[in-house]
Structures are given as C-alpha cells and as structure tokens.
C-alpha cells in the first residue's frame, strides 16, 4: 500500500486497546484484588462471609437452575423460529421484525411487563378467573410460591432473550449456501435428515456463539428477577448488588462478582469444548 506507515494499524487499534485495558482488564484485576482483601489485608474472609450468608447457596442454586432451564429452552425455540422463517415467503419482513423486537427490550422492562401479567390481580389471573380455574386474585410471585416465581422468571427471560439467539441463528443460516440443502434433497434426504445431517452441523459456529453469549448473559440475569420477585428469588448478581448498595460491603460484593466471572468463563470453556467448531469443515 502506498504511503502508509507500518505503524498505522497500531495507531488505529491503540485507542480501543487503551480503553479495554482501563475498563475491562484493570477492573477485572481490581475485582480479584478486592475480593481477596479485608481491611487492607489479603484474606479469603470475603469468600467465607459470602459462603456463610443465608442467601448464598439459594442464589447459587437459583442462578444455575435458571441457566440450565432457560438456555436450552431459548435455543430450541430460536431454532424452531429460525427454521420457520426460512420457509416463509409472504410477510417475512414483518414477522422478522416482530420476533426481534425483544432484542431491544431491557431485562428490567421485561420483568415489569411480566409483572403486569402475573401479579395478583393481573391479566394471567384474569384469564384463569374467566376460565373458572381460580375464584379471585391469586399470588404467584411471593416467597411462599418459590416454584411459580422461578418459572415466572424463566418465562420472562425466554420472552426477552430468545430474540438474540434467533437473530444469531438466522444470520448463521443465511451464511449456509442453499446448494447444500438442495444437494441433500436431491440425494434423498427427508426434511428432518436435511436438518440433522446438513443444516445443524453447518450451523455449529452460530450455535456456539449463541450459546456462549446467552449463557454468559444468563449468569448476569438480575433485573428480571428483581422486578418480578424483589429479593424473594435471590440470584448471584442480585446479591452482589445488595452487598454493594445496601450493605456497603465492597469485599463481599467483589467475591460475588468473582464467582459470577468465574462461572461465566467456565461456561464459555465448556461450550468451546462441547461444540467443536472446525473451521476447515465449514464452507
């Protein structure tokens, strides 16, 4: 390239590196330091205090249960929707738009929307009332009904964040040349065989990144649960928030944050292992 200095690319990436160093790497290290510091001394005291906290194990359990229930549901639903949209001819644009609207909706707003539906005298109960299933306002979101509260969070999460998986999968499907499916069709594959032997393997990279992104974000779930149940359903990030804001204890909050960062990283590694993407096996 004429008249271009060899330093130009470094000059171009430098600002973003600097930024990521200050706002990603540094606070990352800082979290670890804070988590292991009590009163200026290096100590595992924050972790001991966190583990002894009444809410810690329920928060762990709830967070993992949410991830384990929500993520597979979202992927299955998004995959179904992506395949449905592939076949669509009329009205495809409008359906695409509708199905992707939740992508722009915050977890807080999603929690509030489902609060309107699931609250004691909300729309869900109204439907049940008209069907004769219940006789009056009924509570689903209190600490007395942990199971229904949990599923309320699951529903709100599936409602809100399936769109992200859907968009990634549709984009991935668009990258697969049509000829592969046609070849499979000509060589006798039924629609299911085509999906199983051709589409799904070629969609692996998109599936992988959807799973990584969604799992990491699901570990971060916070406002949905908070909007629906307050602290009735404790989860890890929510506890970090409480320790930081209400209890003013940065050390324990940092310990919680450390746990979240660790499980996120672990889940990413798991997905990278489980779904092996071999670049040379892609078109």
């Amino acid at each position: 390239m004429p008249a271009r200095s060899p330093y130009l690319p470094y000059l171009l990436i430098a600002p973003s590196i600097l930024f990521l160093a200050v706002f990603f790497l540094w606070p990352f290290a800082q979290t670890v330091v804070m988590a292991f510091t009590v009163d200026g001394q290096t100590s595992t005291g924050n972790f001991a205090r966190m583990a002894a906290d009444l809410n810690f194990w329920p928060a762990m359990g709830n967070t993992f249960a949410l991830v384990i229930v929500v993520v597979p549901l979202q992927v299955a639903l998004a995959l179904t929707m992506a395949v449905m949209i592939q076949k669509m001819t009329t009205g495809r644009d409008i359906v695409l738009w509708i199905w992707t609207i939740p992508l722009g909706i915050s977890d807080l707003a999603a929690g509030l929307a489902w609060l309107a539906i699931l609250s004691n005298n909300g729309y869900f109960n109204t439907v049940l009332f008209h069907l004769g299933i219940i006789s009056g306002p009924t509570g689903w979101l209190s600490y007395e009904t942990p199971l229904t509260l949990f599923f309320a969070v699951v529903v709100a999460e599936v409602w809100r964040a399936t769109a992200l998986v859907f968009v990634i999968l549709v984009a991935g499907l668009q990258l697969i040349p049509k000829e592969y499916a046609e070849a499979a069709e000509v060589f006798g594959a039924s629609p299911w065989q085509r999906f199983r032997h051709v589409t799904l393997p070629l969609l692996k990279p998109s599936l992988q990144s959807a799973l990584i992104l969604r799992t990491v974000l699901a570990f971060e779930v916070f406002a949905v649960a908070y909007a629906l149940g307050g602290r009735n359903i404790p989860i890890l990030v929510g506890e970090a928030y409480t320790w930081m804001n209400a209890n003013q204890n940065t050390g324990v909050a940092a310990a919680y944050a450390g746990v979240v960062l660790l499980v996120s990283l672990a889940s990413t590694i798991v997905w990278l292992r489980v779904i092996r993407v071999r670049r040379e096996h892609l078109p």
Partner: peptide, 30 residues
C-alpha cells in the same frame, strides 16, 4: 428425493463437514 435421480451442482455442493467417503455415500445412507 422421490425422483430417483442424482445431480452434480455448479459449485459442487460437496458437504464441507463430511469426509470424501461420507460425501460419496451420502445418498446411499439417506
């Protein structure tokens, strides 16, 4: 798939995630 025919495509459409043997045997396996 019910027409008992085979086709060679312009861009080959040889499946990238299958070996040569798996590709050649695809129609038979289906």
């Amino acid at each position: 798939r019910r027409r008992a025919l085979a086709m060679v495509f312009q861009n080959y459409a040889v499946f990238p995630h299958m070996t040569v043997a798996e590709n050649i045997g695809f129609g038979l396996r289906m």
